[in-house]
Design a binder for these strands. Structure first.
Ligand SMILES: [Mn+2]
Ligand SMILES: [Mn+2]
Length: 294
DNA sequence: ATCATCG
DNA sequence: CGATGATAGCGCTCA
DNA sequence: TGAGCG
């Protein structure tokens, strides 16, 4: 049976009940990824994938997985890349079809973290991304900073979209033509981040060390690197309430909370509105010349 | 979750 | 046998 | 070279 995947432990609780919302089982996770495949797969296709697995649910032990295990079915597509520091080859999963999504869910791969570049141009990310990390708790503050980042990008001729990270953060995403390597895009993002920190240093920091952040929202540009990654749009998160990273139009941002978007609520939203991420996404852009100067 | 290895 | 360990000791920046 | 970070 080359097609079939034996699913196991479908009733195992992966997220305990949280507030009003009931527990979410492994079976619920599998149902979610299957139903969401049409919107999930475009975000994963042809991108090296890192997953975070929770074989005993989000309350249990977890581990990152980059290298595809030997016991993976032979039809799982992979790309072999060299890990510089570890000095070894790593076979990354390419999650290009529903079957692979299903297999990953059965492997308890709850979080899906694809690269920002695709296999046919691995060194060139197709977005400039800001990962906004709040100090603790404060989604409200993150929203305000996200709106500032949007203004800053717009002042520099770049359109962007936002999604909840699923945790307390926000990802601001400016799609790019694949003309620039990671280093160039990261340097540009750092330059923009420094500018925002100069203008709004009370609310925003680019400080690497936690101690220096002092309750401010951290503008993390460190995701712009080969081998780095963040949770993809529509990816479940291993957080209380089974939240999902979800696109939010700018005008709605201050009226939502991350737990509006969960494994329980999102399929219905997608049935009603379709792939909001795709629909909100501007066309791939060039970086403005004045930002590129070394 | 699954396998390799160790007692 | 069952128990134990491994699965990113990554990639990057700053000190 | 290593600590700290995500
Ligand atoms: Mn984040
Ligand atoms: Mn971050």
């Amino acid at each position: 049976m080359p097609q079939g995947i034996e699913l196991s432990n479908l009733d195992k609780v992966f997220w305990p009940a949280h507030g009003e919302s009931p527990a979410v089982s492994k079976g619920d996770l599998i149902t979610y990824v299957e139903e969401m495949a049409p919107v999930l797969l475009p975000a994963l296709r042809n991108r090296p994938l890192t997953v975070i697995r929770y074989p005993n649910g989000t309350g249990g032990a977890s581990f990152y997985q980059k290298d595809t295990p030997k016991y993976a079915p032979e039809w799982i597509r992979t790309i072999t890349l060299h890990a510089t520091q570890a000095k070894r080859d790593v076979r990354y999963v390419l999650c290009n079809d529903r079957r692979t999504l299903r297999w990953l869910a059965n492997q308890a791969a709850i979080e899906l973290h694809p690269w920002l570049s695709r296999v046919d141009r691995l060194e060139r990310p197709d977005a400039l991304v800001f990962d906004l990390d709040p100090p603790e708790g404060g989604f409200e503050r993150t929203v305000q900073v996200a709106l500032m980042v949007r203004e800053l990008l717009r002042d520099n001729g770049l359109q962007a979209v936002a999604k909840t990270s699923g945790s307390k953060g926000i990802h601001v995403w400016a799609p790019l033509q694949r003309r620039y390597d990671y280093r160039t895009v990261r340097r540009t993002a750092e330059r923009l981040a420094a500018r925002l920190e100069a203008e709004a240093g009370d609310e925003v920091t680019t400080e690497f060390s936690k101690a220096g952040r002092g309750g401010r929202v951290y503008l993390d540009t460190g995701r712009l690197a080969p081998g780095a990654h963040m949770a993809s749009v529509y990816s479940p998160r291993a957080r209380p309430g089974a939240p999902v990273s979800f696109p939010v139009p700018w005008e709605d941002l201050s009226r939502v909370t991350p737990l509006d978007f969960t494994i329980a609520s999102v399929p219905e939203l997608v049935r009603a509105d379709g792939d909001r991420w795709k629909d909100l996404m501007p066309a791939p852009q060039r970086l403005p010349e004045d930002l590129l100067a070394d």
